[in-house]
Design a protein around this nucleic acid. Structure first.
Length: 119
RNA sequence: GCUACAAGCCAGGCUAUCGACUUGAGUGAUCAGGUAGGAAAGUCCGGACAGCACAGAGCAAUGCACCGGUGAAGAGCCGGCUUCCAGACCCUGAGCUUGUUGAAGGGUCGGGAAAGAGAUAGUGCCACAGAAAAUAACUGCCUUCGGGUAAGGGUGAAAACGUGAGGUAAGAGCUCACGGCUUUUGAUGGUAACAUCAUGGGCGGGUAAACCUUGCAUGCUGAAAUGCCACGUAUAGUACCGUUGGAGGGCUGCUCGCCCAAGCCUGCCUUACGGCAGUCAGGGUACAGGGUAGGCAGAUGGAUUCCGGUGGGUAACUGCCGGAACAGAUAAAUGAUAGCCCACGACAGAAUCCGGCUUACCGGCUUGUAGCUUUU
RNA sequence: UGACCCAUGGUGUAACGGUAGCACUACAGAUUUUGGUUCUGUCUGUUAAGGUUCGAAUCCUUAUGGGUCAA
């Protein structure tokens, strides 16, 4: 997700849940699966640290996203997801990998519950 | 060999798998190449580049301040000058404890530091102590009782150049000798700062990183600059101006002064730029409000960096020849996992670009200097 | 990316270049049967490092930390 408008709309209308250290906001749409990540500069003062967290999250997302993508595409729907990293310590990759898989399972369950759109 | 200091260089490596950004080739699947720093940081200096419709003058403001060189430029760098600082060695030898001691002084040597113009252009300030902190009053001294004097006053960071002699009523650079500082003129050496010598004048403290004076320099803004394309909105609102000139804007912060500044249509003149006439307000300026916030250029190869050779220069630096290297994102790439090796990995991440300075930094290597030790 | 400002006890604030004050807090003592109030006393200090000056919180330079502004 890159568009400021879309992000604003997601934060205004979307639903949310929390899997520490992540807050997740999501909203089902008509387009495809989209994903964004943010890290607060309050928690990490250096841009380099923020970028590293973002990189790790993107890597974990890239490796695990396929199942969810298929589920959403199978119902002819889109899904906007935005993650907020809330911890104050630099994580290692295995932690991020675990937490992202939990997030994905929750989302997958939610995706299976909604009715399919008629295309 | 060890230790210390200074300067320079390097800043984990390799393999496999899966990715990200980007360049090239290909119709395409895909293939091939490239991808963080010495500080990318701080933003402390200096530029390039861009815009401001460029006419300047005075004032203000800011910066710089020994000389020469270097370089695109600089508050950078290199070399020199002057002053100061601590040291080593040598000479001399006060003192009393007569020694393997070393006060004051002189010479030589290399090293370090300096925002290093002006304190008789003016103004201000100088706590405490002290008679007094600056055109000399008080005490003292002398006196012909009108006055003269800055020797003595021991406090302080600082007290009217220091020592000795002359001189005098008492005194005083008042005079002289030696010495110190400052300065005029001349000579010699040096590109110059300056040095040496001669000569004349002066020596009424400190502070200019107090105000200030003198000299020199500086237009402002800053890639969120700037140019273009697309999408979208409001042909609406308020005020002012509108060819008989001007709302407003610019030139430097201020003043003066100067400059720029307006459309559509028709006709005539001109090669063109443009000019003249008619005509309308549909034009212009400022404000408020509304819309958009996408793309392209700027933008990454240049005063570039490194290596080798060869010249110039004490050096900084630089000429020529040959070779090699150089990311370019835009919610913003440069990553993840596994294995192996070693010295076990510090500080830290590009955002228009470049030259410096400063600061941070695990460790390793090279060179130089000094000291100690070992061997010959 | 660029421009600018600030830093004084635990807290809030003063201070011409000349002994760093004030209030609250904390601690101790007095008063009180005890506590509070009140009174007295004490502790705690110029962000760091250099420089100018006889002397620096103040002036200058560099660094550190914090903050503000500009689409």
């Amino acid at each position: 997700m890159k568009s400021r408008k879309a992000i604003d709309q997601l934060f205004k209308e979307g639903q949310r849940f929390s899997v520490p250290p992540f807050h997740v906001r999501y909203q089902f749409t008509a387009a495809e699966l989209k994903f964004g990540i943010t890290v607060s500069s309050k928690n990490f003062k250096k841009a380099v640290d923020r970028n590293r967290v973002k990189r790790l999250v993107r890597e974990a997302w890239r490796l695990q996203k396929n199942e969810l993508q298929l589920a959403v595409a199978g119902k002819n729907k889109g899904l906007d997801i935005f993650l907020i990293y809330t911890a104050k310590e630099l994580p290692d990759y295995s932690l991020i990998e675990d937490k992202i898989s939990i997030v994905l399972k929750k989302l997958l369950k939610l995706a299976n519950e909604i009715p399919a759109a008629n295309s």
